[in-house]
Write a protein that binds this DNA or RNA. Structure first.
Lengths: 143, 143
DNA sequence: ATTTTTCCTACCTATTTGGTAGGATTAGTA
DNA sequence: TACTAATCCTACCAAATAGGTAGGAAAAAT
């Protein structure tokens, strides 16, 4: 399951993407419209900014903007940021690799093979799901 | 990521499946051979028994046996038992369904569409990964 | 009776999740 | 300069989950 952080982050990013012309958008507005606790969302957007997925502008009329186009930002980036590795096993992650201590032989491990296939399929789908793609999906579902 | 419970359970089940002729197998033997804490594994096997994935025999020369053939038991069952829903969002699970409270319209939600595709692909692969299948995979990788 | 096993109840610690509180700092505007 | 509206920063917190441990009762085979 995705954490609330990931879900809130995705919702906030989609909100900004859908109101691109009005950037930068203050946290308070996103929090209100998407019913996300203000202070919590503040922390989330700080993380997104540190990861350079959004950029911020301080002071009056400040707020957050996408750092790039909606086609540049995908769910894999967001999920990795807040929930860490996407894979089911640490031995099939790229960035967080760790052997399973109980594993006798990683190269022949059957569970690992399955986990690897699932990871690859999942990552591919999450990378395909850019903000632009999600907005387009919703547009199509609405007709 | 899978919990240790799931990983230990899968390893224990694979161990029993590989030693089918010697059933029932005592917890102590599995714990020793697969380096799993004894008492923890005891609790795990109790859960597997309650779920009727294994069956137990009490007393001397007792232990645990598979309840069915290695082709009957798949990873989806085990993962669901210990880690709950497989999906990324509660709104695309079957058994644990819950709407996302922040969601405006579930039928058009783009994130949901992606989550549903990922869930379906993942569940299919986990169901395909029966104990028999895993053992066969390891046999093939060994040649 | 002894041994070896499962079964049952209770407890425990560390980490993660999902927040909240309060104020300092920055920037635009009058 | 003063005011306002925003981000930024530090600290704290409660509940849930993960990953165990302890001790013994009950059952079954010899």
């Amino acid at each position: 399951m995705l954490s609330k952080k990931s879900k809130y982050a995705i919702n906030a990013l989609l909100y900004i993407a859908k109101h691109e012309a009005e950037q930068p958008i203050p946290v308070s507005r996103i929090a209100e419209e998407r019913h996300i606790p203000l202070k919590f969302l503040e922390a989330i957007l700080t993380e997104l900014r540190n990861a350079r997925i959004v950029k911020s502008k301080k002071g009056k009329y400040g707020g957050y903007s996408l750092n790039g186009t909606p086609a540049d930002i995908d769910l894999a980036q967001v999920v990795r940021l807040f929930d860490g590795a996407i894979a089911l096993l640490p031995c099939v992650t790229h960035d967080y690799y760790q052997p399973c201590e109980e594993c006798v032989d990683e190269t022949t491990c059957g569970i690992r093979q399955v986990a690897l296939e699932i990871r690859n399929a999942t990552v591919a789908r999450l990378k395909d799901a850019t903000l632009a793609n999600l907005i387009e999906r919703e547009r199509q579902a609405n007709t």
